[in-house]
Structure formats: C-alpha cells, structure tokens
Design a protein around this nucleic acid. Structure first.
Length: 204
DNA sequence: AGCACGATCTGA
DNA sequence: CAGATCGTGCTA
C-alpha cells in the first residue's frame, strides 16, 4: 500500500485531477474503514480561473488553497453541503482538485447509514461523497499525506483512453473560457464496470 | 448589520 | 423546477 505523498499533489493541477482517477480514497472514522476508487474529479486553477475560489483573492475561507499541496480543502455550500478538495501545486499558487465521485469498496454499509438512505447510487456528486465518507469542515486543512483519518492510496493508473473530459458542473457564473474548458475528468462507465468485476481492489 | 449567493441534492 | 438552509464576503 502506497500512500500518495506531497510530490504527487505538488504538480500541474490538470495532471493531478487526471491521475487521481483510479486511486483509492480511504477514510478512517470511528474505528471503521471506508474507502472507494476515485472516478470523477475537477481541476480548479487558482487566480486565473474565474470558477475557482481564490479568483477574487485570499480570504479566511479559501486560505488553505494558498498553502502547501496535499492538504484537504473542505468547505460548506448551499447551506447544507460539504465539498472536498485536495490542494495542488506549490505554496502560494492556490489550486485544488475537487473530488466528485468514488466507486465504493469498503464500508458501503456504513456509507449507507451515514447517508440515511438505502439502495441508491451512493457516490455521485461531491456532496454525497462527503456524506458517504463522513467528511466535514473539521477536516479542512488536514494533511492527507499523514495516512491518518483521510488519505489516498496508489492502486493503479486508468489508461488514457478510458478517461473522459468535459466542462465543470455548477459554475454558470464563471467566464465563458472557464465555463467551457474541459477541467472535469471521469472514468468511462465501461471501465468502472471492469474495475468492479476484475476487482483486484475488493479486498475486504 | 444587512444582504445576495453559492464547486448541491432531492423529490414533485 | 423549486425549496432547503447558512457561512462567506461584499457593501454600508
């Protein structure tokens, strides 16, 4: 098991967003282990990106994005939801990757309990991901390279031809160039099914 | 101190 | 497609 270290995140944000696909996100919560394979991400490119929080400068809320890579940036939106990002690039270059979806591996039962719902798709959407993995603002600023509470493990790389790209979700307010740029990445559906079946991952 | 608005989700 | 729901950041 290889925990993703700072040098993984301290790189070009679009590359990190792409390469996070296929890696495992692990949460240690109340003695339980909840995990899933990352299948959808979005890149937020800092002060030049009108969809990105630091576009209007540094504030108390977004200050973690200005810090070192490999740190969790968790914030509250819409009066009810948390969103989870990983900070990328070097200090004072405020970029991050938003985690939008995982394929559940371990702790699925627990994910369902946390969400209070059953029998539905659990991990579509960044807020549902946070609910499922018990991620809230208390993890804002947490160092994801420590291998405690919340971290990433290298599983394997998703082949280039199984990665889809498109515009990001929920940023209608952003400038046209940023709205339309392909900064969202996801694993092609067929390959997700393949991951499930082949399941070198499903070691419970 | 007040106000407008979200990197969303749900259910009608 | 509206409603839930509240922290954040801007204006005064």
């Amino acid at each position: 098991m290889k925990i993703l270290k700072r040098n993984f995140f301290e790189r070009d944000t679009l590359l990190v967003a792409r390469e996070l696909l296929g890696n495992k996100l692990v949460r240690r919560y109340k003695g339980r282990r909840i995990s899933g394979i990352v299948i959808e991400t979005e890149a937020y490119l800092g002060t030049d990106d009108s969809a990105s929080h630091p576009f209007k400068g540094k504030t108390r809320r977004n200050q973690v994005m200005f810090g070192p890579a490999g740190i969790a940036y968790v914030y509250f939106v819409y009066g009810m939801h948390y969103l989870f990002n990983v900070v990328t690039e070097e200090t004072n270059n405020p970029c991050a990757v938003l985690l939008r979806a995982v394929m559940p591996l371990q702790g699925q039962h627990h994910m369902e309990r946390l969400r209070g719902k059953r029998g539905k798709e659990l991990t579509n959407g960044p807020a549902k991901l946070c609910q499922a993995m018990a991620i809230d603002v208390s993890l804002n600023g947490w160092d994801l390279t420590r291998g405690e509470k919340l971290w990433f493990e290298n599983v394997k790389t998703v082949p280039e031809n199984f990665i889809c790209t498109g515009p990001r979700i929920g940023i209608d307010y952003a400038a046209k160039k940023d709205r339309e740029a392909h900064r969202r990445f996801w694993v092609q559906k067929e390959f997700i099914a393949h991951m499930r079946e082949d399941s070198p991952y499903e070691i419970y």
